[in-house]
Design a binder for these strands. Structure first.
Lengths: 193, 193
DNA sequence: CTTCAATATCTCAGTACTGTAATTCTCAAC
DNA sequence: GTTGAGAATTACAGTACTGAGATATTGAAG
């Protein structure tokens, strides 16, 4: 499983725009080995955007698999771990706050907190000022667990991204933060123009 | 839903390592507003790695939501679209090849091709040389659909990543490709050291 | 020809959620 | 004090897969 397997195949690649578009990282735009003259065409804005989307999806998945494997050793999913971590570093949080921090659906928070409560790691507490709302808070057992596994997890992630030097990581952080916030602020167009 | 909602809260952030670790992009390491002296400490290698992981996950999710919304207009999931796209740009492919290209499980390919076949967009073809294997290929209807929706999809993605200039996009591509391939090549450590 | 490890696909139960609707509660306006 | 829009959580059905095992086939070795 080294990656693309450059076996070329008899792949009669149609002369369309460079391939690239899928979720989990698809094809990957080849150099176009059959163009009229030997002149390389500059990549269009859309070709670049598609390629960015592909490598973004692929790299996220590749790193996520390491992160998942790490937390799975303790019987946790990444979303569960995310909740434990955010409660550990911020203290008790309203469920809605948790939802916004880890970016799951409203039903997802209920489900995840239920499961963590079932494991004895998190408990719900009532909110004094608003009886609709509830806090999620770590139990002593939950706090102890996070204290134990978080450092290992951090090392795991550091290893997973170690293909980039620290300088490169800082560059990537800057670019990705900008990309993430701008994409999140754009309205999701549902096609009803 | 502008993003983090800087309401600060009474958040008595414990003096641990900077927060950050979840899947779908968690907390997001604040400046540490209560340190001994007014001297900023350089971020450790692990802090940087964790932050990279957070912004990677968040930006991927933010862009994915745009991509999903676009293909959902045609009743497709991103994984389904990925298959259509790869078959469109590469021609008929063995199911195993499709699996490696779009990075789903073996059962996932069967499931997805079944669904696309049910919609009349893809068909299975037997492989002459190996009777265990099967090709997936676009039907005329499938080919027509991709030809119609791919350009729109490309524009959709271009818009989603337009927060970055073309130069920045090219930088991000370089960094993310390096990150993705190195992370994919690292063995997944299941903890049995 | 047999054996058998390896490969390709499929089956199917299980999982981790999402999305919609229901419920409960708040707050501002009347 | 009522009313009602809106917010916070929950309930629940549905979805898009994953992962492990089953089945069929290949190809190399004996």
């Amino acid at each position: 499983m080294s990656e693309e397997s450059r076996t070329a195949r008899k792949g009669r690649s149609r002369g369309r725009t460079s391939s690239a578009a899928a979720v989990k990282a698809p094809s990957g735009a080849r150099p176009a080995e059959g163009r009229p003259a030997g002149r390389a065409r500059a990549a269009s804005a859309e070709d670049t955007a598609l390629k960015l989307w592909v490598v973004l999806a692929r790299s996220q998945l590749a790193v996520a698999r390491h992160a998942e494997a790490d937390v799975a050793r303790h019987g946790l999913t990444l979303a569960e771990f995310a909740i434990l971590e955010v409660l550990y570093h911020r203290g008790p949080l309203l469920l809605g706050e948790v939802q916004r921090k880890i970016l799951v659906s409203s039903g997802g928070v209920t489900y995840l907190v239920d499961r963590l409560a079932g494991k004895g790691l998190v408990e719900r507490r009532e909110c004094a000022h608003d009886r609709r709302a509830r806090y999620a808070a770590l139990t002593p057992a939950g706090e102890k667990l996070v204290a134990r596994i978080f450092p290992e997890h951090a090392r795991s992630i550091a290893r997973a991204v170690s293909g980039l030097s620290k300088t490169e990581q800082l560059q990537a952080i800057t670019l990705l933060r900008k990309l993430g916030t701008s994409a999140a602020d754009l309205p999701i167009s549902d096609g009803t123009s």
